[in-house]
Design a protein around this nucleic acid. Structure first.
Lengths: 201, 201
DNA sequence: ATTTTATTTGACTATCCAGTCAATTACTTT
DNA sequence: AAAGTAATTGACTGGATAGTCAAATAAAAT
């Protein structure tokens, strides 16, 4: 089994953090290695390239965060409450990162995705995959809410995509404005969109 | 007046196109110069830095596109029709660019903004400014629609921001999926959000 | 204890990058 | 025609970049 090491884990975590906080292009392999306290040779022992690292880092991050989403969207919880809790979760996470880094960071999947969608097909696909996994949670909540007669929605799948688009757009605006206040509108907008609360009033 | 030249214009246009199509980080000054058929020395005769060029390029692009928006949101046109036409305009533009470049490019302001919001404050501000200018058109349409009693909306300004978030999110998803089909939902979603059309049905 | 396997080390390469500069050119103004 | 002004040229710098490699090392398996 050779020599045990946590260098790979370190690199994955540091890479995710740095890329989310800055951008893929702005973060160098040297910088990642330095912050992870790993030599460059080790980096290329674990990863064939910078983009491979990015893909693995994002997948790993998902793996770590998935239990939290499973908890939020637990079938034990009423579907509309699931959505409310998710909105709050998204906001909390942004607040937390903003506090840590001094500015609003937005959605990590969307950031990597927009930056590289037109340049690196593998990263585009990974980014799409991660977005899709998020949408599936929303879809399941909408389906259950419909089944229980809590909301009237024709196409929960399309609805989930719409909702997620809006959330992505708000995160994007929060980042561009560097203003967490934008996210105060998140929950009411989401609940309004699915007809669970009055948008107009 | 010295020696007349269209090099500056060329650089601005080429830079906007390349950055939109790829990303700020992926496009080099050399590449911009080459495609604009301008020497590097000339580049730095006109622009103090790459980021200054980007800011000017985006401002210039807005200047060129503004008349089109003024036409779409002309007070001569009923407000809800303004919004429909705007949605169609956004889709058309994406189709056009996708055809030209072979992939969906998304919103240029959002792309530059997300990539650099956390790194270059001046670019973040410019990006925010451009987004705000767009939102103002939507807001004016919503205000007029409300005044005419066409829709019931409490806060047209907040509504405009919500609508724009959704559009940004959809453009982002279209880019990440490299799929123009995502935008088929754009107009119905926007009209549904403002209560001008049934979302549920 | 020895072999095997996996990780570590850090110097190295070749390329690319943003930005500089001094000399030259071409146009406008007087 | 001369002077003034602005654009052009392209070679140059210094530093950063992704990625390489062969030798050293440490743990696990035998």
């Amino acid at each position: 089994m050779g020599r045990p090491s946590d260098a790979k884990e370190k690199l994955l975590q540091v890479a995710f953090d740095l890329i989310w906080n800055q951008s893929y292009g702005a973060v160098s392999v040297d910088q990642i290695c330095e912050q992870a306290r790993v030599n460059k040779g080790s980096f290329y022992h674990f990863f064939p390239s910078k983009s491979d690292l990015a893909i693995e880092a994002y997948e790993e991050h998902w793996r770590e965060k998935q239990p939290e989403l499973d908890r939020i969207f637990s079938p034990q919880i009423p579907p509309l409450e699931q959505l409310e809790r998710w909105c709050r979760h998204v906001c909390d996470r942004q607040r937390q990162k903003a506090k840590k880094y001094g500015h609003v960071c937005g959605c990590p999947y969307a950031s990597l995705g927009t930056e590289l969608a037109t340049q690196d097909e593998r990263i585009r696909l990974k980014s799409q995959e991660l977005v899709d996994r998020n949408i599936r949670y929303i879809e399941s909540a909408l389906l259950e809410a419909k089944r229980q007669g809590l909301i009237a929605i024709a196409d929960p799948q399309a609805g989930a995509r719409r909702v997620y688009s809006t959330v992505l757009g708000m995160l994007l605006q929060a980042k561009i404005r560097n203003d967490l206040g934008v996210l105060d509108e998140l929950e009411p907008t989401v609940m309004g969109m699915i007809g669970a609360r009055e948008l107009v009033a």
